[in-house]
């Protein structure tokens, strides 16, 4: 028996200024079985929706107004008013160059998917954020998922296990 994802239990917020892109992502998610999928065309509406609560996954474009998708991510991870600082975030953006990937990662993105994307690529990111949750790291200057993906053998004390003072 293999693992399955029941998308009907996952509530998505999609943020993209492009109406067609919002609709396409929503259609894909609903085809997968999602029943609770909300869209927002700018970052302020997204923040209002997030504040109202009821979302499990945020999918956002970087290129948003008035705040960028990166600022939206930063707000979610660090702001006192954030509804869930550990919410999985997929940055789905046409800002596809490596510097954007690195910057997103350093702000605590869970997954990055460059546009133009493929259906397969989208599905893999969804599986990753839902079925392969990562621990979070809180350190000065960073709050987000553990950025180390590779599980390499390490000899010596695991200092990551230290508790805060």
């Amino acid at each position: 028996m293999s693992e399955k994802i029941d998308f009907s239990h996952v509530r998505f917020l999609i943020v993209d200024s492009n109406r067609l892109m919002c609709q396409l992502i929503k259609d894909i998610l609903m085809m997968l079985g999602c029943t609770q999928c909300t869209t927002a065309r700018d970052s302020e509406k997204a923040i209002a929706s997030l504040r109202a609560g009821g979302f499990d996954v945020l999918i956002t474009e970087w290129n948003l107004k008035p705040r960028s998708g990166l600022e939206l991510l930063d707000w979610l991870r660090t702001d006192g008013g954030s509804p869930d600082r550990m919410m999985p975030v997929i940055m789905l953006t046409a800002n596809s160059e490596v510097e954007y990937v690195m910057e997103s990662r350093d702000k605590g993105v869970t997954e990055f998917l460059a546009k133009p994307f493929t259906a397969d690529g989208m599905y893999r990111r969804l599986v990753s954020v839902i079925a392969r949750p990562r621990d979070f790291v809180s350190v000065r200057g960073y709050f987000g998922p553990d950025r180390r993906r590779q599980q390499l053998p390490f000899e010596g004390p695991d200092r990551r296990q230290q508790k805060p003072d």
Binding site: K4, M86, P88, I130, P133, D135, S138, V139, Q161
Partner: peptide
């Protein structure tokens, strides 16, 4: 010091079966 916050896995529990 870095603090590791274990993922609660709530979403996985909700959706994966």
């Amino acid at each position: 010091k870095a603090q590791i916050i274990p993922n609660r896995g709530e979403l996985k529990r909700k959706a994966v079966n």
